[in-house]
């Protein structure tokens, strides 16, 4: 389904509930009644074209986000990506940690096994956090500098050197190891966890992990299909100018 401005947001979310975290990252609160996407954006001073592009990209892997690229500044995209990161670090991951911790506390048997699971999750969390910090401290500032340089028409030597040594294409490859750990985590719980008295808790943990994985994949896809091409274009412009 192609999501459009004049659709009621409630209808869109009925159709694809995976979009709920997306609207929360835009700061849209529940209780939006019969309002359409356009009306909600106008009331909250959000860029409705940008919200639509993100919603559609998230909703349908075949949506051609690049066609809509030029309509919004890269800063907008980056602030969205940062909101997503905040959501992972401050809400998702701590919540899963809480659930796994509950597992270690409530079961009388196999305490060591659950503790091991917890340690593994902590390790995963650390790695994902490191990856996110790198994006926010290195990648995003670089991208924003590119945008400033293009808007102002002047490129500093330092930036030019950075364009030549670091290219955004390198960045696509950096996602992998973090993904493998999440894959392992799911399999350990699905296949090898010793029986627990609280099966429901395990189901909830698994469910959360699957949601997290899907969300991370969409996040990576937004970076790869919207951010990376846009930055590549800026890199080309700057290189041509030099």
């Amino acid at each position: 389904m192609l999501i459009e401005k004049d659709m009621k947001l409630a209808d869109v979310l009925h159709h694809d509930h995976n979009l709920i975290p997306v609207i929360s990252r835009f700061g849209i609160k529940l209780g939006f009644g019969e309002n359409t996407i356009e009306e909600i954006c106008a009331a909250q001073q959000l860029d409705s074209d940008f919200l639509l592009t993100i919603l559609n990209t998230f909703h349908d892997p075949l949506f051609f986000a690049d066609r809509h690229l030029k309509s919004f500044p890269v800063g907008l995209l980056i602030s969205y990506l940062k909101e997503t990161h905040k959501n992972y670090l401050n809400e998702r991951l701590p919540y899963i940690a809480l659930l796994i911790n509950r597992l270690t506390e409530t079961s009388s048997d196999h305490k060591t096994a659950y503790q091991l699971l917890m340690n593994f999750f902590v390790e995963y969390k650390k790695e994902l956090t490191k990856h996110i910090e790198r994006e926010e401290k290195v990648v995003y500032p670089y991208v924003l500098q590119l945008e400033v340089a293009i808007a102002s028409g002047t490129t500093s030597d330092a930036l030019l050197q950075q364009v030549n040594t670091y290219s955004i294409t390198d960045y696509e490859e950096e996602h992998e190891n973090v993904e493998e750990k999440l894959f392992d985590l799911k399999n350990i719980i699905l296949k090898y966890l010793p029986p627990t008295t609280d099966q429901n808790l395990c189901f909830t943990i698994l469910h959360e992990l699957f949601i997290l994985e899907k969300d991370l994949n969409e996040h990576a896809r937004i970076e790869d299909t919207i951010l990376v091409p846009k930055v590549e274009e800026m890199e080309r412009i700057i290189n041509k100018r030099a």
Partner: peptide, 17 residues
Amino acid sequence: KLGIKTVSGLTVYALMN
């Protein structure tokens, strides 16, 4: 066979078993 790719994941498996 195990469906586990990382060293730390394998370690968790080995310890559990």
